[in-house]
Amino acid sequence: MTTTTFARTSGAAAPRAPIADDRAMLKAAAELTRDLNAPRPAVYWGDFLASAALGYAALGVAIAAGPLWLTLIAGVVSMLALYRGMSFIHELTHVKHASLPGFRIGYNVFIGVPMLVPSFMYEGVHNLHHARTRYGTSDDPEYLPLALMKPWSLPLFVLVAALAPVALVFRYGILSPLSVIVPGLRKVVVERYSALAINPQFRRRMPEGEAAKQWNLIETACALWAMSLIALVVTGALSLRAFAIMMAVASAVAVVNQLRTLVAHLWENEGEAMTVTAQYLDSVNVPPPSTLPALWAPVGLRYHALHHLLPGLPYHALGEAHRRLSGVLDKSSPYYKANYAGMPGLVAKIARSTMLPR
């Protein structure tokens, strides 16, 4: 959720030749992974519930701990675990709910409402990012040509995420109830402040039918929790120290996720529609042997480029899909051009691009 505008670098960029689809890669991706499409409920539920349980347990330790070192260690553990749990919102937008009954409810109960990141903030939004004619265009809610913007846009892009927990408490604790009684405010809240999007021009459509009923129910729960949290702090029932630790952990989750978003793509498209192969090459895999991506790009997000080839593949199958494709495709295949070693090199690559004259 953002309304920040990032400046483009001045001058006209040289036009780039369009990238044609690599039929061999697309065919191999489809044929070699047909048996991997079914999500495994035990894996989803076990991973998700363990992440949430560890996250909240560590948060409790961080709040109750006396020594600062223990608070910091527990806070980091809590952040990583809750970040992993929150990352399942991405899976919700792709998985068929009939194959994972109750998972949307479970996500909202254990992560969505407590963290004020309910499922509806991504459902109906992320699918637009994968639309063949929308990716990388002004109609893509999750795309900004960051590599073509001013150098200061990158640190601003990351730092603004630190304010996300405050913005979410305000959105659900203040704007939600006000939007019920203030004419016209509801439309603004839904259109502009109800999506995990980075494109400031994106506007959501008002939900309808069953989607609206589900949205209103979940949003009511978020509003009640946010208002209760505000009341607990104001009355002193929740100490400022405990509240500060909670907000610090949530802020760290948002910043790490924004850093991951920064390196999820190369952000080099200037608004034209792209082929599937071009979308793949503008996206990023950070496969093994790198180990840290398992922490900052959890739940399959380290295979983000592969995910754009096979968006319906469950997260637990992406590693096997990568191994199969790597074992079959020729080394000249564009498949390998989306593989990178880690975050530092990717950040440096994008930063260098912002400094090029245009």
Rank of each mutant, 00 (worst) to 15 (best):
H90C: 11
M121Y: 12
V95T: 10
L100I: 08
L154R: 05
L163C: 12
V77N: 00
L159Q: 04
H126I: 01
P114G: 13
A74L: 02
M115R: 02
V125Y: 04
T133C: 01
R84D: 02
F103Q: 00
L148R: 07
A162L: 15
Y107R: 02
L159N: 05
G106I: 01
P114F: 11
D140R: 03
P118D: 01
S78H: 01
G106M: 02
T133R: 07
L146A: 12
H90K: 05
L156T: 07
S119V: 05
N127H: 11
V95R: 07
I89C: 10
L128A: 12
V125K: 09
H90A: 03
H97S: 15
G124M: 06
R132P: 03
T137L: 09
K150D: 14
M149F: 07
S153N: 13
H126A: 06
T133G: 02
H97L: 14
L128D: 11
G75D: 01
Y83Q: 04
Y135N: 05
K150P: 15
R132Q: 05
L156M: 10
H130M: 15
A81F: 03
R84T: 04
Y83G: 03
G112A: 09
A147L: 13
G75P: 01
L159D: 05
F157T: 06
S78V: 00
T133L: 09
V160W: 10
P101H: 10
F120N: 06
P141K: 05
Y107I: 03
E142D: 15
K96S: 07
L92W: 00
P145G: 13
V77I: 15
F157D: 09
I89E: 11
T133K: 04
A81L: 00
R84G: 00
S87Y: 11
L163V: 15
L154K: 03
P151H: 14
P155N: 12
E123P: 00
L156Q: 10
A162K: 13
S99K: 09
A164D: 04
G102N: 08
G112Y: 04
R134W: 12
A162M: 14
S99Q: 14
L156V: 07
A74R: 03
